[in-house]
Design a protein around this nucleic acid. Structure first.
Lengths: 242, 242
DNA sequence: AAGTGGTCTAGACCACAGC
DNA sequence: CTGTGGTCTAGACCACTTC
């Protein structure tokens, strides 16, 4: 379970995993300064070069951020990151803006088999389901269904949905200590159902783009599954591939 | 121009750039074994650790590949890479296959302003334009327009288009010494024109997915621009985002 | 001036491939 | 057995931030 203990792995790997786990359990929170390389080396009994290699990995994972002369910090949610790219549905004038969010429904429920399999939990385990509409200039742009493991996001049930704000990931960070660092997305196109076309104010049978996203924490465990649908004619998606 | 000479940059950076340039000018070709770390260190007059750091970067760029005990090799085109992911248009049965390719047209011409700006060359400079149809089970799946800088791809003009094969990137490698290592893609949806719907055997006004791709060499210079269109209802695109 | 990360070095030992 | 990359160490010096 805990790779930080598996002594077949190189030290820098175990160190990376241990640091990742410490961040994940909120020993250090986004924005915090972590101990210096020298301190970490002394604490773990390894050379500074080994610490550097572990930190290098976490930096390239987007989890940590170095600042020469200042120290190494836990990175905050990145609003310009590609995680936010399907915000790039164009507004009328073409510029990019953060859409408004309106939570339509919030429900605690047992996971369906599909949700459980995506989140890699058992069927029937408690999850939180959100239904959200995103708008620009009061025009609906995306209809989203979101599922979260309840045990990690309990705090969301105690909060008024009107207090959620326009972005969820900062909320996850602040209220639940959950940090999204990567995601897999699958894009497809389908035809709007009657309900969807009413919600998005489209004509019947309009083509919709469907974006399924599975978001991971820094230990690559799935923490959020969402399915977003928007009018295909306003869709523009940018991807960098390697 | 040549960052390998800029002594404000760290040595491992200059070394990385110099190695990249040597690969790009085909001093070593895909599949070749490059000199050992010790040899490179001796040749460039740097410590082995510095060589390792330069090679580390090229490995994470996907240009080189280490094999413990054997050496470091120039990577061949990766057919399972995400560069090939819009091959994932599903076949009837759902499995993934490499589509057939049919070159419909090949033309040497001066670059239009749009093409020149994408490829970052001057308007009117010579380019090669390809028009290609991709099929699975003889059913058209993608209609592609492709533009290449003529100076780099001259060899393609001397080859029968029927000899091109089903994949272009291996052809670029073998015939022209050009290696694609990364790309930017922009996805949009549009409605098929009459000509497109005839080519792809769709009904009029069917929704099309449009994938614009700018492909880069390992010095991040654009070498190919393509625009691919396919039926939206058979589209499935996977992206990993960080 | 003190502390931090950034670069670079030199060398030890290990794991693996290939003769 | 030799040569290769993989890990790890220890220390020097530099560049930057903060006081």
């Amino acid at each position: 379970m805990n790779s930080a203990l598996d002594d077949r792995l190189p030290r820098y790997q175990r160190l990376r995993d241990d640091l990742a786990a410490r961040i994940n359990r909120n020993e250090w929170r986004p924005g915090d300064l972590i101990p210096s390389e020298a301190e970490l080396g002394a604490h773990y009994g390894v050379a500074i070069g080994t610490v550097r290699k572990a930190i290098d990995q976490l930096v390239s994972d987007g989890v940590l951020e170095r600042q020469q002369g200042r120290g190494t910090f836990v990175r905050r949610a990145r609003f310009n990151s590609s995680l936010f790219r399907f915000f790039r549905f164009q507004s009328e004038s073409g510029e990019r803006r953060v859409p408004q969010s309106r939570i339509l429904r919030r429900k605690a429920m047992p996971a369906t088999t599909a949700v459980a399999s995506a989140l890699r939990i058992g069927a029937g385990e408690p999850v939180i389901s959100l239904s959200r509409l995103r708008l620009i200039d009061d025009v609906p742009l995306l209809a989203e269904e979101i599922w979260l493991q309840r045990s990690r996001f309990e705090a969301l049930l105690a909060l008024e949905t009107t207090e959620f704000g326009d972005l969820l990931y900062p909320l996850y960070e602040d209220r639940c200590g959950q940090v999204v660092v990567s995601a897999d997305e699958i894009l497809t196109v389908e035809i709007a159902t009657e309900m969807q076309s009413r919600l998005l104010r489209l004509e019947a049978n309009a083509p919709l783009i469907v974006i399924e996203r599975l978001a991971f924490d820094l230990e690559r465990r799935p923490i959020e599954w969402r399915r977003s649908r928007g009018p295909a004619d306003r869709f523009r998606y940018h991807a960098e591939i390697r």
